[in-house]
C-alpha cells in the first residue's frame, strides 16, 4: 500500500517540470508534470517519482509525526 510520505521541495528547474525534494534528509528528483504552482519550501506527497498533492507545512508535520509513530510500532 502506498503511504503518503511528505517531502519538502528544495529546488525547481527553470522549466518547472522537475523538483528536487528532501525526504528525511535524502534528496531526489521528482516530476512536477501533474502539479502546478509548486514553489521551493512547499511540501508535496510523492508517488513513484511524481508529486501528487501539495500539502500545508502543518499537515506535513502531522503526517510526518504519524509516520514516526508508524516506524516505531513496525520496528
Amino acid at each position: 500500500m502506498c503511504l503518503a510520505i511528505p517531502a519538502e521541495v528544495v529546488a525547481i528547474t527553470d522549466d518547472k517540470q522537475t523538483a528536487t525534494v528532501s525526504l528525511e534528509g535524502v534528496r531526489k528528483d521528482i516530476s512536477l508534470a501533474l502539479l502546478t504552482d509548486v514553489e521551493p519550501g512547499d511540501f508535496v506527497l510523492i508517488h513513484v517519482g511524481y508529486a501528487l498533492n501539495k500539502i500545508s507545512p502543518d499537515e506535513a508535520a502531522r503526517t510526518l509525526a504519524l509516520m514516526a509513530e508508524l516506524e516505531e510500532v513496525s520496528s
Binding site: M1, L3, I5, I46, E59, R62, T63, L66
Partner: peptide
Amino acid sequence: PRLFSLCG
C-alpha cells in the same frame, strides 16, 4: 486519509 496518498 493522512496515511495513504492514492486510495485514502
